[in-house]
C-alpha cells in the first residue's frame, strides 16, 4: 500500500508519542538499576539520578559479602517458585484434560463448580482461618499452597485450548487401548506446549511476586520470600528514621544504605527482566486468549 509508506508529520508525531510512552514505562526501572550502581556519597550529595555521577559496584559487593539474609530469602523465593510452578501447571493441565474429555459427561457441571469459586468465596478472613485449620502456617507449605497453586482462570485458558484439538485424536488413541492418563501425558500435553508455557509463566510470575502468603501465614524471617523481605526492609527503615528523628537510636544504628536497598530491589527484578524478552510472546498470547475467551 502506497498511502502507508508516506511519511507525514502525523506519522512522526505518532512515533514520538509511542516512544515517549515506552520511556515512561521503562525509565523508572532504569532508575532503580542506576541508583544501585551509584556510589553512596554521590547519592547523599545529589540524590538519586538516572545517570550515575560516579559508578560503583560497592552495593553489589556488600550484597555478596554480608547479604546472608538477602540470599536466604532469595533462595526461598527461587525454590518456592520452581516447585510451585511445576506443581501448579501439572494440576491445571491434568484438570483441564479431564474437562476437555468428552466422555466425562459431568464436565460442564464440574466447570461450573470451579467457576463459582472464582466469583464467590468467603474473602480474607475465612481464607486465613482455613489455612490455620489445615496447618498451613509457619512452614514452607504455607508459601506454596494457599492462593497460588491453582487458578480457575488458568484452568479455563487451558481447557479452551485443548477443546480445539481434534476429538479424533482421543478416540483413535482409545481404540488402541490407551487410558486417559497416557493420552493426556503422551499426546495432549506435548501438543499443548504453547499454552503450557503461557500458564506456567503466569504461575511462575505469581509465585515470584507473592508476599501475601508470607505476610499472612509466616512470621519467621528465615522463611520470608524476597518480595516480603523487601517490604520489611522499607518499613523497618522508616521505623529507624522515626527513631532517629525522635533521638532514640543513635546515628550509628544500622540502616541499609540507599544503593544497597536498590541493589536488592534490582536483583529481585532481575529474573523477570532477563527472561522477559524470551517469554514475551507467550505472555501476549495468553493475555489475548484469556481476555477474549475467558
Amino acid at each position: 500500500m502506497r498511502a502507508r509508506k508516506k511519511i507525514t508529520p502525523g506519522k512522526i508525531l505518532i512515533y514520538i508519542v509511542v516512544t515517549l510512552v515506552a520511556c515512561f514505562c521503562l525509565l523508572p526501572l532504569v532508575l532503580v538499576v542506576a541508583v544501585s550502581f551509584t556510589a553512596e556519597e554521590e547519592i547523599i550529595r545529589n540524590g538519586y539520578s538516572l545517570i550515575p555521577g560516579r559508578l560503583s559496584l560497592e552495593a553489589y559487593k556488600m550484597l555478596f559479602k554480608n547479604g546472608k539474609e538477602v540470599f536466604r530469602c532469595y533462595i526461598n523465593s527461587v525454590v518456592v517458585t520452581a516447585a510451585g510452578t511445576v506443581l501448579a501447571t501439572m494440576i491445571t493441565a491434568m484438570a483441564s484434560y479431564s474437562l476437555a474429555n468428552p466422555s466425562v459427561q459431568y464436565r460442564n457441571a464440574i466447570s461450573m463448580f470451579f467457576f463459582v469459586t472464582m466469583v464467590f468465596n468467603g474473602g480474607m478472613v475465612p481464607w486465613y482461618i482455613m489455612c490455620k485449620n489445615l496447618g498451613l502456617t509457619e512452614n514452607y507449605l504455607a508459601l506454596l499452597i494457599p492462593s497460588l497453586i491453582f487458578s480457575p482462570f488458568n484452568l479455563f485458558l487451558m481447557r479452551n485450548y485443548m477443546q480445539q484439538l481434534p476429538a479424533s485424536l482421543m478416540e483413535s488413541a482409545k481404540l488402541d487401548g490407551a487410558n486417559d492418563g497416557v493420552i493426556a501425558f503422551r499426546i495432549y500435553f506435548p501438543l499443548c506446549k504453547p499454552i503450557l508455557a503461557t500458564v506456567a509463566l503466569f504461575y511462575g510470575i505469581a509465585y515470584w511476586n507473592d508476599w501475601w502468603n508470607a505476610i499472612m501465614l509466616v512470621s519467621d524471617s528465615k522463611m520470608y520470600p524476597i518480595q516480603y523481605y523487601l517490604m520489611k526492609l522499607r518499613s523497618d527503615q522508616n521505623f529507624m528514621k522515626q527513631l532517629q528523628s525522635a533521638g532514640v537510636a543513635g546515628r550509628g544504628a544500622f540502616a541499609p544504605s540507599e544503593s544497597l536497598q536498590m541493589a536488592t530491589a534490582a536483583i529481585t527484578i532481575g529474573p523477570i527482566v532477563l527472561l522477559y524478552p524470551f517469554l514475551q510472546k507467550y505472555i501476549v498470547k495468553g493475555l489475548v486468549i484469556g481476555s477474549v475467551k475467558g
Partner: peptide, 11 residues
C-alpha cells in the same frame, strides 16, 4: 508497555 505489569507492588 507490558513489562511493568509483571513487577510486584513491592518493587
Amino acid at each position: 508497555y507490558l513489562l511493568p505489569y509483571f513487577l510486584s507492588w513491592a518493587i
